[in-house]
């Protein structure tokens, strides 16, 4: 399983590196949302600083829909997924590989986006360890739940609307927890014992386990 996961992650990242969809489309999209959020809200520095973590994670959540959709679409082009089945690639490995690839892309996107948030909204960040750890587990959770739901919704003609409908409510605890733990980190009450961080860890572990167990059944069905 681990070997297949590595193989899949390497392949997906290489494809992503070549096609540059994340860089050329998803990242600009995330930036646009950051800008229009400011239009919708008050542009006084106080407001934007206060809501910066929430807007950041909302932008990430929206962007993740495109990333996970693409991760699954790679295998539906030219029926490559059937190919994987014929080659005997382990389904848990496929899942973990795709989660890894999406995770890497989202994490890099978050790094760039964070710079954008600091410049555009101007929050002060104190608790870096909490910021990084929360981001890590939140991203694992979003990637795991996302890859799984993207596979569930694949094959549907209404995939573009079905995926957000399924994914956003499921990942809402991540949005909440990541936002809150970042608020703590930004407001210098940061500690690694933050309950929100614990919630993020629980979520990511649960969804990784569910995916590793059930991904095969979704593919086989």
């Amino acid at each position: 399983m681990w070997r297949d996961a590595l193989l899949m992650a390497g392949k997906d990242l290489r494809i992503e590196f070549r096609s540059k969809v994340t860089l050329n489309q998803i990242l600009p999209f995330a930036f646009v949302t950051l800008i229009v959020f400011a239009f919708a809200l008050d542009t006084s520095p106080g407001t934007l600083q206060k809501v910066a973590p929430g807007l950041f994670w909302l932008a990430v959540l929206f962007s993740s829909i495109f990333s996970v959709d693409r991760a699954v679409a790679i295998e539906t082009n030219d029926n490559a997924g059937d190919g994987l089945a014929v080659y005997g690639v382990d389904s848990g490995g496929i899942f973990l590989g795709k989660v890894t690839s999406v995770f890497v892309q989202l994490f890099l996107l978050e790094a760039v986006l964070l710079v954008g948030v600091v410049i555009l909204y101007g929050p002060a960040i104190d608790g870096w360890p909490l910021v990084l750890l929360s981001a890590f587990f939140a991203t694992v959770g979003i990637s795991a739940a996302g890859v799984m739901y993207s596979q569930l919704a694949s094959g549907s003609r209404a995939k573009q609307t079905l995926l957000p409908l399924l994914l956003i409510p499921v990942t809402s605890p991540v949005l909440l927890a990541a936002t809150k733990s970042w608020q703590d980190a930004f407001s210098s009450t940061a500690s690694l014992g933050d309950p929100w961080l614990r919630l993020l860890i629980v979520f990511s572990v649960v969804y990784l386990a569910l995916g590793a167990v059930f991904y095969g059944s979704i593919l086989e069905a």
């Binding site: 392949k11 290489r14 494809i15 070549r18 096609s19 790679i74 082009n77 030219d78 029926n79 490559a80 059937d82 190919g83 994987l84 089945a85 014929v86 080659y87 005997g88």
Partner: peptide
Amino acid sequence: ARHRVGLLGHETFLYEDL
């Protein structure tokens, strides 16, 4: 049995960007 079977069909199972 899949991994011992070679299937060449209408689809080639190839990745466009590789």
